[in-house]
């Protein structure tokens, strides 16, 4: 059985693809994560993250056309695979299952520490 565990960054990267749809490229992912998740990532981090996910079969990618805004360079376009979507769903469900009954207590503990 293939290991389907996903780390937080990996989940964020996959959710970004869910939100942005097919043929998403790195700059869009960076902006989304910065705006919506408050997470700042360098292009290197984003692409190596996706490379790792691609090796596990959770993401597919290809090179797009060159554009002038990129100095004539091509972009890498990503999309989430079915396998990736399943893995993300499972990972998220695991967190939700354990989190469900515990959120009020978590609030209390976190507040106490403050």
């Amino acid at each position: 059985m293939r290991n389907r565990a996903l780390g937080e960054v990996e989940q964020l990267l996959l959710f970004a693809l869910v939100e942005l749809g097919d043929r998403t490229h790195g700059v869009e992912v960076r902006e989304l994560l910065e705006d919506r998740a408050g997470k700042s990532m360098s292009p290197g981090a984003i692409h190596t993250g996706y490379e790792r996910l691609q090796r596990r079969g959770f993401v597919a990618s290809c090179l797009g056309e060159p554009t002038a805004a990129r100095g004539g360079r091509r972009k890498r376009l990503y999309e989430i695979t079915t396998l990736g979507a399943q893995a993300l769903r499972e990972a998220h469900a695991r967190i939700q299952l354990i989190a469900a009954g515990n959120l009020p207590e978590l609030e209390r503990l976190a507040g106490r520490l403050k």
């Binding site: 292009p43 290197g44 692409h47 691609q54 290809c62 090179l63 056309e65 376009l77 695979t81």
Partner: peptide, 28 residues
Amino acid sequence: ASIWKVYSSGAAFRSDPEEAHLVSVTAG
């Protein structure tokens, strides 16, 4: 940060995703 990430994650020493012969989306 990108250079650091590519090297520290070991990606620099792995094959390029273009040559990885993994699932590829057909692109333009």
